[in-house]
Each structure stands twice: as C-alpha cells, then as structure tokens.
Design a protein around this nucleic acid. Structure first.
Lengths: 360, 360
DNA sequence: CTGAAAGCGCTAACAT
DNA sequence: ATGTTAGCGCTTTCAG
C-alpha cells in the first residue's frame, strides 16, 4: 500500500555504495566500521545509508564472520518463575555484552532437548546454556562440547561431562534442611518431585536428575547422622500436574503412618501441596510441617508464611551467561565452577510434629 | 583435544557431494529435499551426510531463501509470570509450526523496545510479536508494519496502527469489577499501576498504555453510571519496586479518608500491596478490600483467597503466534481481531467496607 | 534427473 | 585510503 517503503527489496551495501559514489568495500568498511576509511568517505557513506534507511543484514554478516552474537538457551519450562528469573539473568547479561538469546522450552523432555540443541547448532549460535533434563542422557551435550562450541550447564550437573556448570550445592542444603526437620522432631519426612522414573522410589535407586539425586543423598545423610532411617515410602516421584500432586499429598497425609513434614521439590509443586493441605482442612504447621525449594515472593503471604530454600537463581543466570560469553570470546575460564549456595529461610511453616497418635 | 570432531571446519554440502560422488547441486537437493533427485542419488547423499555427520548451516539457508524460521518476541518482563505464560503459549505454538523464538526484554522501556525491534529486524526474523511498552510512541512499530514484516501486538493496543492485536477487553472488565466494588459499598477505590507518567494522575490525563487507559475509562464509566465520581486522588501511577508499592499502599490506607478497596494493576504489584496490608496489621477484606489483575495460582493460597481478574494469557500467546505465522505464510487473516475476555473471579478479598469513621 | 554457474549480502584478502 | 576479487554455504536458474 505504502508509497515507497513497502514492497521494495532491502537496501544493501551495494546500494549505499552507489549512492555515496564509493566502492562496495569502502561502504562496507564505513558501515561495519572496521578497516581504514577517510572521514570524507565515511561521512558520505553514513549519509547515504541514513538517506536510504540502510540496515545491515546480520545473517550475511554472521556468514563470513562465523559469529552470530546469539546464544541459545534451553530450559525445561519458562513458565516456571524459577526459570523465568534465571532467564532474566541470562538475557540481562547477554544484552549487556551485545548478545541475543534464542530460547527453547523442552518440557523437561530429553528428546525435545536433543532436538533443541540441534536446531540451535544449525542456527550457528555462538554458544549454549542448557538446563539438562537428564544428568544421564547427555550424549548430545557431550557432542556439543566436543565439537568445540561453548556450552554451560545450568541448575543441573552432568557427571562425567567436563563442562562449566552453574548449580547450587544441593546435597548440602538438602542435608541441612532435613536435619532441621529432624531436630524439630520429625521422622516421617516426605519428599515430592516431578522427576519421571520407571516405577516408584526404591532405596538406592539411581536418579536421572543430579538435582534430585543430590537432594536424596542429602536427606539420607541427615537421617544416617541422626541414626535414623530415611523413610523410602515417603519419597514420591513422578508427580505430574496439580491434581496428581494433590492426590499424592492426600495419600501422604491420610495413611496410617502419615508424613509429619513434606518437602516440595519446587515452587510449582509446593503450591499444589499447600492447596491440598488446606483442602484437607489441616493446618500448617500444627498438623503438618512444610518446606519447599524456591523462594517465591508469595510464600511470604500465606498464613503462616512458608519456610523455603532460597536459591540465587538470578545470579546463577548471570553467572552462566558470563561464563559462556567469556568462553565465546576466548578468555580464560575461572579455575573451577564456583558453587552457589542455597539458603534455608525459616519462616513459619515448620514446627514440632503433633504428639504421636497412639492408636495401637 | 579430541581425535577428529574437534577443530575441523564444519562439513558442508560440498563435502557431502564429494563423498557421494555427485554434484553440489544434487547433494543440496537431496539434503534440502527439494527439486528432483533420483532414489539412488538421494540414498548415497543421505548416507554420506550421515557418515560425515553433516548439519545444514541454517544461516546460509536463510540467506538465499529469505526465511529464517524465527520469530522475534519483545516483552516488558519475562520474569513476570504473566509474560512467562504468554511466552509459553507463543513458543509452544511456534515450535509446532517449525519456528524458533528470539526473546528480548525491554523492562517496559520504549528506547529498549525500539532497539530490540531493530536488532530483530537486522537478524531478519520472519515476523515480530511485541507487547508495546507504550501505546503512543509507536513509530518504530509503524515502520515495521509498513516495511511489510508481519507484526502482531500482544496485550496492549496501539490506536492508529492497523496491526493485528491480541488483547482483552480491558475497559469492559474494569467497568464490571469496579461496579462490583461499588455495589459492595465502596466509594474510595484505589488503583495502583507501575505506568510511568510525568507527574501524578490528573483527571482526563492521557495515559500512554492502552491497557491502563482502558482500565481507567472502565472505572470512570462505572462511577459515572452509579452517579458517583471517580476519586482521582486514589489513582496512583509510577509505582516502582516492591518498596515503593508498599509505600503507596500505606499512604492510601493511612490518610484521613483512606481507600476502602485497592485494585492492583498486576500480580507483581498485588503481591507487594498485600504484603504492605499485612504489615499494617490490617485484614482483608474486613479492613480493606482487594482486587488484582492476573489470576496467579498463589492467590488461592492466601487467607482469604484473593478475588482476581483472570486473563487467558496462555491462549493469547497462542493466538498471537498463530496470527503471526498465518501472516508469515501469507494466509488470510481473520476478519477482525477477536477480543479475549477477562473474567472476574470472586474469591474472598472483597467485602463491604467498614462502617464509615465518623471522625468529623 | 543432473550439473555448471550465478548469486544472497556481507567481509576479507590482496592489490593499488 | 581505496578498489578488486574472492569467498562464506546454501539455493536456484538454466542447460543439458
């Protein structure tokens, strides 16, 4: 419709060069501002570019430089504020260094992750940040790394893969918070996670996610140190949507030997657990203690406010992006992966368990 | 370090062609699977590609086809679950149609938005979805549209810009919920938004954001219909971080003629408002009624659960992506922008105001 | 069906 | 400082 801007071919350096009466090379140099250009030429070129409304084709540029100034980010679920915040840390940092971000969601599905990585590689991103769905199926990640493309892992580790990883010390915080519960008098401590496994939890079962695996190990160590046994029957994996989480919560609380404390593996799960508890007309922490990973702002608003495990998610996003960009730009990497520390924030959802029911 | 995969140049169609003993053109045809290729050739090429671990260079591909199979998304703040969900709707839909998403955050800053749009255009995205920070400064968007690049607006409208827009009927829902408050007995109804303006709110003041402007109009209409006047002094814009929101909330509640009901413009604001109310040791809804935009899951968990305005955010993301892709693929657009409907979900945070203080 | 060759828009030698 | 000439890796005429 429009008079001139409409259906016309994009204007290229050649057009600008012609208008400025210089060679394509000189125009390109002035525009890309590299090489040697006289003030006179630069001026004319810039003026012509302005006049013609020239915009560089970054694709073409990337083709010969080999750099796309784009990094790929692969996460399980942006909808989860945990990743939302981390992504924010990444994009803020990327922008600051002149990088753009292509974001791909995997729904925590390894097949989707493999595909995402391939797509990103095909698009010639300069580097990748991946929150791997599995700490075991990492062949695709190993290939990225071996091909020489910078790669940084976020949130989850991949044992055996020598890649810079930004994650918190999960074993430690899990141990500490479990100990806290034990010291508060709890023995029947439940743990709910969405991690998908074949069949229910069994002692010593290998867990695909380093995150969950480490948490299990931390819990176990806490119990062992207290000369107690980790109640395997209260470790509930394969939680899915809200309804399934509520169902699990009900089971945990309505069995003969109910859980007296529940640990939710993330904020989304925690939400449904708390809701289920409320629906059962039980109160926190009188009837059941509650603890969850992720310090979402709303946890301060419930009655009582929730005791949570805070992770420096934004900072981790920043750190991941910084490490990646450092790698891309060929600068030295820090000697070792700095471990980020999670923190137990004691608010009001943990108390001593009720006096034991002496049914029998 | 690695034996072969390491420092070698990427393998190209030429390499595959050589290995398969065919021309570059034939190899490209087989690989890109277009044009005419005999079964024999295709087989050999594919085998060679597999063998050499060939991966197409999407940049090069995009260069001659002109399509990048990438759409740009520009939002104010991914960290906000509202946008997180919308983004999820977009990426899910994009993936389904074979498109990738480049995401850029603007912090609701128009300058950043202008820059983001330019970057995306330079990267030759096939189309753009923008949640414009301003409904007034839209010159950059107009240029996109006029240049012929598909563009869809999300969440906020841009009057005068004839672009497909996915947004909810804000005036309507604002009117309805304000009426609900008025019918509950409220007259002193406050509204808090982060919209940045020059100076405090004045009656009839032009508001840069269609969203906020429409909400104001809806409130006003509700008051007018009830033969009342909208209390301009309770319309508070320029709210910023959590602390500033709390401060505004305190002012609203501690003045001589305090607000008896507060409407928070989004879930992030709502969070801080509720927190401030709790800190003042006031209770909802006995001391003050509360209503907020965004039906975040946690609003069901507070005591009382919060009355909110739910918007079909995910579906809107889907719709925006679908509309954009339809445009990209040159298919017909629906006659008009379908309006999405928000819904007032009455939970427990609205009640009649306390008997009026008869100080004077 | 196949191959040679041109070209997308830009950068990067290489001359001058 | 400037221009000429090759490419980057792929798609796309155009002949055969």
């Amino acid at each position: 419709m429009n008079s001139d801007a409409s259906r016309r071919r994009d204007v290229t350096v050649a057009d600008v060069a012609r208008a400025a009466q210089v060679s394509k090379a000189q125009a390109a140099r002035a525009l890309g501002n590299y090489g040697a250009v006289s003030d006179d030429v630069r001026e004319r070129v810039l003026a012509a570019a302005e006049e013609l409304d020239y915009r560089p084709n970054e694709l073409a540029r990337s083709m010969n430089t080999g750099k796309s100034h784009t990094i790929g980010v692969v996460v399980g679920d942006i909808e989860n504020p945990h990743f939302g915040l981390a992504t924010r840390g990444i994009t803020d940092t990327a922008k600051r260094s002149g990088f753009n971000v292509i974001l791909i969601n995997t729904d925590e599905d390894t097949a989707a992750e493999i595909d995402a990585v391939r797509v990103l590689l095909d698009k010639r991103v300069d580097g990748l940040i991946v929150a791997p769905a599995s700490s075991v199926e990492t062949h695709h990640l190993r290939r990225v790394h071996e091909s020489g493309r910078p790669l940084v892992l976020l949130d989850r580790k991949a044992p055996g893969l020598d890649v810079h990883t930004v994650a918190v010390d999960m074993e430690g915080i899990s141990h500490d918070s479990t100990t806290y519960l034990i010291n508060s008098g709890h023995r029947r401590i439940a743990f709910i996670s969405t991690l998908r496994t074949d069949g229910p939890y069994r002692d010593g079962m290998p867990l695909d996610s380093s995150q969950i695996s480490d948490r299990r190990d931390g819990m176990k160590r806490a119990f062992v140190e207290a000369d107690l046994e980790l109640p395997d029957d209260l470790i509930r994996l394969n939680a899915g949507d809200a309804e399934s989480i509520k169902k699990i919560t009900r089971e945990l609380l309505q069995r003969p030997d109910p859980a007296t404390a529940i640990i939710a593996s993330d904020g989304l799960i925690g939400l449904s657990v708390v809701e289920a508890i409320q629906e059962l007309d039980l109160s926190i922490p009188q009837d059941v203690s509650f603890l969850m990973y992720d310090d979402f702002a709303w946890t301060r608003l419930t009655t009582p406010p929730l005791t949570v495990i805070a992770q420096p998610v934004y900072d981790m996003g920043v750190a991941a992006a910084e490490a990646l960009i450092r790698q891309i730009e060929g600068r030295k990497m820090p000697a070792a992966d700095p471990e980020f520390m999670a923190e137990l924030i004691r608010r009001g959802s943990v108390a001593a368990p009720k006096a034991i029911d002496v049914d029998h």
